[in-house]
């Protein structure tokens, strides 16, 4: 919402356009620059984008969540287990026969979202009620949640996810054109963009990160607001979990381990301040796309895979440096 963001938004967008332009030139025609590749890139970025929307709000408000990867895994386990258990007996599943498919899918999705939101509430209460710094609180819950998921599943991928869930939803497309993951990521992003930039809730989110005491004195219920942000982020983990189970027809304990840091990187690259009070969803969209674009481009260019990490790291450093310069410029006055 604050206007001075526009400059850095434009900078990061230009950087993305430049990266796309370079890859388009140096790769064989019809490989990188093609509709189907754009679809692959968006598909890869969609989960990160959804999680990054939650992290954008949290960072702006002065919070942090390192447990989103673990919550996603836990929720995915819930989704996969519930769906597998309700769809039919093990014997029926072995024949790929699922008598209660509709109920199973509906209940599993609801459970996944609720469990994600529930863990988010735990984070929120730890950070707000017990006043544990969010870095430590969510680091700890991340470990606990992942540990419980591991104990529950014995570290095994969860089996017996009904195959139609993957074939019709995970591999399915809206109007046979846009994969569902991308559609859902777009809807989530749009909702979060509107809430952040158009509503009282969004304004208060900025105010809390800019000056928590000022927001409190102005009558913002800062504690409830912060808890809600953690709950919302947890619910987003639930959404990603549903998409993950749909795509891979399993819940893997080892997936998503780097999600928290990837999301923070994407959000910061997109111009959101690590110090709170500043940030925009539009920047986050660009920030979440950059790693996926670099991955696709480097693979297609046949560049050593590790260069992708180098490139994302460099972009992240530049983004944080710009942020700090801004803060210093402000403190000087």
């Amino acid at each position: 919402m604050p206007r001075p963001q526009r400059l850095s938004d434009a900078t990061i967008l230009l950087l993305l356009i430049a990266i796309v332009a370079v890859f388009s030139i140096v790769t064989p025609a019809g490989t990188f620059l093609s509709l189907s590749n754009a679809e692959s890139i968006l598909l890869t970025a969609s989960q990160l984008l959804i999680l990054s929307c939650g992290i954008t709000f949290l960072l702006i408000a002065g919070g942090l969540d390192l447990s989103i990867g673990s919550i996603t895994i836990f929720s995915a386990v819930v989704v996969a287990k519930v769906m597998g258990a309700l769809a039919g007996t093990a014997a029926q599943a072995a024949d790929f026969h699922y008598p209660n498919l509709g109920v199973a899918i509906t209940v599993a999705i609801v459970c996944g979202l609720l469990v994600g939101a529930g863990w988010g509430a735990v984070n929120g209460l730890l950070a707000v009620k017990l006043r544990i710094p969010p870095f430590i609180a969510t680091l700890a819950t991340g470990g606990i949640v992942l540990g419980l998921a591991s104990v529950w599943t014995n570290g095994q991928n969860v089996q017996n996810v009904p195959l139609p869930f993957q074939s019709s939803f995970g591999l399915g497309k809206l109007f046979e054109v846009i994969p569902w993951s991308i559609v859902i990521a777009a809807v989530v992003t749009a909702v979060f963009w509107v809430v952040l930039s158009k509503t009282r809730f969004g304004l208060h989110t900025y105010a809390m990160g800019a000056n928590l005491e000022a927001a409190r004195r102005a009558g913002v219920n800062v504690r409830r607001h912060m808890v809600l942000l953690y709950v919302g982020t947890g619910a987003l983990c639930g959404i990603v979990a549903v998409l993950d189970v749909a795509r891979f027809s399993t819940a893997s304990i080892t997936s998503h381990s780097g999600d928290a840091l990837s999301a923070i990187a994407a959000v910061v690259i997109g111009g959101t301040s690590l110090f709170g009070g500043r940030g925009r969803i539009s920047g986050t969209v660009v920030g979440a796309l950059i790693p996926a674009v670099l991955q696709s481009g480097f693979v297609i260019m046949d560049v050593q895979p590790f260069w992708q990490n180098v490139a994302v790291g460099v972009v992240l450093l530049v983004a944080v440096y710009v942020d700090q310069v801004k803060i210093r410029a402000q403190e000087r006055t």
Binding site: T27, P28, T31, F32, S34, S36, N37, S40, I41, L43, T44, Q47, L48, D244, R247, F248, S252, T254, S255, H256, S257, G258, D259, A292, Q295, S296, G297, V299, I300, D302, P305
Partner: peptide
């Protein structure tokens, strides 16, 4: 010859790009 860590989405993204190339 491509390598990734453990994340399924990342792995799928890499393989998609290889298929494209």
């Amino acid at each position: 010859e491509r390598y990734d860590a453990t994340d399924l989405t990342t792995i799928a993204g890499t393989v998609s790009a290889v298929l494209k190339r």
